[in-house]
């Protein structure tokens, strides 16, 4: 088995912006993901952090093949997924699953839990009816639900239990990579801990690989081994989670940390960490995309875009300060 499960090289997704109803003309491009490289190792969690609109969800959609890339390469287990034939593609789709943010909208209210969890298996036609039922019961038990849940509907469950159902569904087709898109941010603080512990346990027991997308830094730190910070379609900093959390280099990463709320009233903060908002992707600023909000901005930041450079072993950053 290769040490790398997923590899993205120069991955890009540009969305056209059109005008006109019938004869649509392209008036601009939104560079949702603009040339990112990263690797996800077997059995590890890779965290993607950033504010809304930074391209983290688009990245996950490219991996899930819900969007087609504009450019770049995605390799799964060493093979380029865009060269897959239909059988290989089907196998890929089964082994890469997703858990979404809101368990109230990601589960079909008219389907029974057994059908929801069994659907990825049924689509792939891999098991007989009785084996399928057995597998569904098995994954439900793995996520801490009773097998009796099969016959019930999503509305009979609380938010945390629904997220468990969503996790069971992602496990069902013997998946290897699970994309976790804000898996706990819609849940209560007390339930978050349950779900995060469950995900950690499942990873250890089943050797799963996670791609975690979140904006809550504490969640990402707790869950991931490697972290990449994204800003307007680009990775601005990447490295081992512990290294990034103890020595954040990019001013944006530092601001994100500063924005995280204190865990004790004695550590209240008076200043606001960042002014302004994420730039309009249709009309991005020249040079470093972060310079209008950066407190350390220099003339060079306005003129030239910084490239990702290795600052410490395994810790890369895209900033003119270094």
């Amino acid at each position: 088995m290769l040490p790398l499960l997923l590899e993205a090289v120069g991955l890009k997704k540009h969305f056209p912006v059109t005008e006109g109803l019938v004869y649509q003309r392209v008036v601009g491009w939104i560079k949702a993901v603009d040339g990112i490289d990263f690797t996800v190792k077997h059995g590890e969690t890779f965290g993607l952090v950033g504010e809304s609109g930074c391209g983290k969800t688009t990245t996950s959609k490219l991996i899930l093949l819900l969007e087609t890339k504009t450019a770049g390469t995605l390799r799964f287990d060493g093979a380029d997924i865009h060269g897959f034939n239909s059988t290989a593609l089907k196998r890929y789709r089964a082994s890469v699953q997703a858990v979404f943010q809101d368990p109230y909208s990601s589960l079909n209210p008219r389907m029974r839990v057994g059908d929801i969890v069994g659907e990825p298996l049924r689509i792939n036609n891999v098991l007989s009816a009785s084996a399928l039922k057995e597998r569904v019961e098995e994954v439900l038990t793995q996520v801490g639900l009773l097998p009796e849940a099969i016959a019930r509907y999503p509305h009979e469950f609380s938010g945390g239990q629904r997220q468990r159902i969503a996790i069971a569904r992602s496990l069902a087709p013997y998946s290897r990579l699970i994309v976790l898109d804000e898996p706990v941010s819609a849940l209560d603080v007390s339930i978050r801990a349950q779900i995060m512990n469950l995900l950690q346990d499942l990873q250890q027991k089943l050797g799963l690989t996670f791609l975690l997308i979140a904006h809550n830094l504490a969640t990402v730190r707790y869950m991931s081994k490697q972290v990449a910070i994204m800003y307007t379609g680009k990775i601005v900093e990447m490295g081992e989670s512990d290294e990034i959390f103890t020595h954040p280099l990019h001013p944006y990463t530092q601001a994100l940390f500063y924005a995280a709320l204190p865990s004790h009233p004695r550590h209240r903060r008076e200043e606001s960490p960042l002014i302004g908002e994420v730039p309009n992707p249709l009309n991005p600023p020249p040079g470093c995309l972060f310079h209008p909000r950066c407190v350390y901005a220099k003339p060079v930041c306005r003129a030239e875009e910084p490239l990702l450079r290795e600052e410490a072993p395994g810790h890369t950053v895209a900033c003119h300060l270094y």
């Binding site: 504010e51 809304s52 904006h215 809550n216 830094l217 601001a255 994100l256 500063y258 924005a259 995280a260 709320l261 903060r269 008076e270 200043e271 606001s272 960490p273 960042l274 002014i275 908002e277």
Partner: peptide, 11 residues
């Protein structure tokens, strides 16, 4: 809201 926007709003 995002964390940075949340911090601005609370302030």
């Amino acid at each position: 809201l995002d964390v940075t926007i949340q911090a601005q709003y609370l302030k």
